[in-house]
């Protein structure tokens, strides 16, 4: 298994390089430049000499292939470059933001897992019941509701009207600041998990080995415990993995909305001023997270299902 993990980790390198190249390319064809954003809203254009000087300072005057090559050389030494704006190493900027980001993602996922999976299970146990209908209606609305709108709604009700919770900010990591953004971010994955769990459980319940379990004399509770939970988990883990993997990227809107100091808001702010090294760094971290989660999911798969072997 150690060799398998090592190989999977090595396989990430080409993916990361491709992503790096893509971002590099996109920002080189996008209109606007870092020097251009320094004029303070374009009221007063910088003199061409000054622009050239700024570009030279950050190496932006060199041709694209050369810049890309320099970037790669630094990248393999784990040097993500220096922020144009703050002149700090990108890696330090990211390090400061990664914990709030993970905190938010984990909180959202905990909500999704602890509420979504049990609800889906209960709904599948009694298909067509009131609980089933309510859960599935909730799930569909959860999936179709835009994140930022839910976020605004939560803010309005719980912060503005009721005044129970702060409406924005990190609050030095206090739990009360985490609650609203976590719900806003976790609601859609929760809804999706509830649906997937319900579908997965129903699929398992209709399979032949469940009839065998009934013929053996299992009670419904024994049957679920011994022959349904684990089998349904195989189906649920796929969705769960994809959700966790994409959560850092999805958090962008919620982080901006709640002024949460995570990777997402760092990236958005940096895009606005074309602080390219920071943008590249944050995207790479988000992609890396997705890839790592994927490997973890495959390991979990193999642990649940003996028919899957790690090769």
């Amino acid at each position: 298994m150690g060799r398998y993990v090592l190989r999977r980790l090595l396989q990430m390198i080409p993916t990361l390089l491709a992503v790096a190249a893509l971002i590099f390319l996109i920002f080189s064809v996008l209109p606007g430049s870092f020097a251009g954003t320094m004029t303070g809203g374009g009221r007063r254009a910088l003199s061409p000499e000054l622009v050239a000087q700024i570009n030279a300072q950050f190496g932006l005057d060199k041709p694209l292939p050369v810049r890309f090559w320099d970037y790669l050389v630094r990248l393999v030494q784990f040097d993500l470059g220096t922020s144009f704006r703050t002149r700090e190493p990108v890696i330090d900027l990211i390090a400061a933001r990664i914990w709030p980001s993970l905190q938010l993602a984990l909180a959202a996922m905990t909500l999704a897992v602890t509420v979504g999976i049990p609800l889906g299970f209960l709904a599948a146990m009694r298909p067509g019941s009131l609980l089933d209908s309510v859960t599935m209606i909730g799930a569909v609305s959860g999936l179709s509701m835009p994140q930022f709108w839910l976020g605004l709604l939560l803010m309005y009700v719980f912060a503005l009207q009721l005044g129970w919770l702060p409406s924005f900010g990190y609050g030095e990591g206090r739990l009360r600041n985490l609650i609203l953004p976590a719900i806003a971010l976790g609601f859609a994955p929760m809804a999706l998990l509830a649906r997937t769990t319900r579908a997965g459980v129903l699929e398992v319940m209709s399979s032949d080995h469940i009839r065998t379990a009934m013929a053996k004399g299992d009670s419904p509770a024994q049957m679920v415990r011994w022959h349904v939970v684990r089998n349904a988990m195989v189906l649920i883990v796929t969705t769960l993995g994809l959700q966790i993997g994409s959560l850092l990227g999805q958090a962008l809107v919620i982080e901006k909305l709640f002024s949460w100091p995570g990777l997402g808001s760092l990236m958005v702010d940096s895009v606005a001023i074309r602080d390219i090294p920071v943008v590249q760094g944050t995207i790479l971290v988000i992609v890396l997270w997705f890839l790592v989660i994927n490997v973890l999911v495959d390991l979990v798969y193999a642990a649940i299902d003996p028919r899957i072997s790690l090769r």
């Binding site: 399979s207 032949d208 080995h209 009839r211 065998t212 379990a213 013929a215 053996k216 011994w226 022959h227 684990r230 089998n231 195989v234 649940i304 299902d305 003996p306 028919r307």
Partner: peptide
């Protein structure tokens, strides 16, 4: 009273 079925391939729980 016990029972065996036609499809031995699917009648057993694949994960146990």
């Amino acid at each position: 009273i016990s029972m065996i079925f036609q499809e031995p391939m699917t009648a057993l729980n694949p994960l146990a």
